[in-house]
Design a protein around this nucleic acid. Structure first.
Length: 279
DNA sequence: CCCAAGACCTGGCGGC
DNA sequence: TGCCGCCAGGTCTTGG
């Protein structure tokens, strides 16, 4: 599911539900393995701790508990849903339930659902998060104007042999851009995803950086994109699918020039372009 | 070190 | 109906 806009939408919704800094009470877990081992002794370590806020870095959710931070990556099909009172066991494809108690003593719980089980959790001491195996190599946040600049992007692009779209999806270059928004951003920028990053001009770098920001902001605004599985915390699909310009639209007319959109594979992933608009 | 392919999973769809 | 291959918002690991 989730590229930056989807994860950010989930983060905002979770923060609303859990805004009272509730105390962690307990945990339920399915016996099935997620992508990696579930962190040991999580319940013991978090018992009685207050969840201060839910943050996001790249495509990760960070549940902040003071001394500890609970990391969650949604993989391809992860989602969170609130649950009023806990009245039932975990259903098929539900893997984790976090139970909290609000300051008014009310029970609050959220349930993690993930059919394909590519998602995962880790519990890390808060001051070691940045240096952890999940975060140490990550590039800048695309919506941070200070670090994700066209100068930065241009400089990095000098030494890459991968195709441009692969380069843009490399989380060491910039985080949060996945398969949908890479195609969308390069269409908006008018640049062919098969180009060598080395061949970009300064102007093209600038266009790409701006296009990435534009499409991610708009997608957050729309609550993300649902291709198949993604649902927000409210149970609804993302609203941005309607606005996609090229992704998933092979054979349809280019919204800019009307010629048919093309699809092909790059590094095993589908890429969509307008061959007339993207040079 | 870099890049592409493989692996990890399930479910839905089209084709035969 | 039923089975088979293919496809899907990611990314760590492996092999060349």
């Amino acid at each position: 599911m989730p590229e930056l806009p989807e994860v950010e939408s989930v983060r905002r919704a979770l923060n609303k539900i859990l805004s009272s800094e509730p105390k962690f009470v307990s945990l339920d877990r399915s016996t099935l393995k997620l992508r990696f081992r579930f962190p040991a002794k999580l319940a013991e370590k978090l018992r009685g701790q207050r969840l201060t806020t839910v943050e996001r870095r790249a495509k990760y959710l960070l549940f902040r508990f003071g001394e500890f931070t609970l990391i969650n990556h949604l993989g391809m099909t992860g989602s969170w849903r609130p649950e009023e009172p806990v009245t039932r066991g975990l259903q098929l494809h539900e893997h984790v339930r976090l139970v909290f108690e609000s300051t008014q003593g009310r029970s609050l719980s959220i349930v993690y659902h993930d059919p394909r089980r590519f998602g995962y959790f880790d519990l890390i001491e808060t001051d070691r998060v940045q240096a952890s195996r999940w975060f140490h190599h990550l590039g800048p946040e695309p919506l941070d104007l200070k670090t994700f600049t066209s100068e930065y992007f241009y400089e990095l692009s000098r030494r890459s042999a991968a195709p441009l779209k692969t380069f843009l999806m490399n989380q060491a270059v910039v985080v949060g851009v996945g398969n949908i928004y890479a195609s969308e951003a390069l269409f908006i920028a008018g640049v062919d995803p098969r180009r060598k990053p080395k061949s970009l001009t300064n102007t093209e770098s600038e266009k790409i950086v701006e296009a990435v920001r534009e499409v991610l902001r708009a997608a957050i605004q729309g609550g993300g994109t649902t291709i198949r599985d993604f649902v927000g915390v409210d149970g609804k699909q993302g609203g941005y699918g309607q606005a996609l310009r090229v992704y998933g639209r092979a054979g349809e007319k280019c919204p800019r020039c009307g010629s048919p959109l093309m699809q092909f594979k790059q590094a095993g992933r589908s890429t969509y372009i307008c061959a007339d608009c993207q040079k």
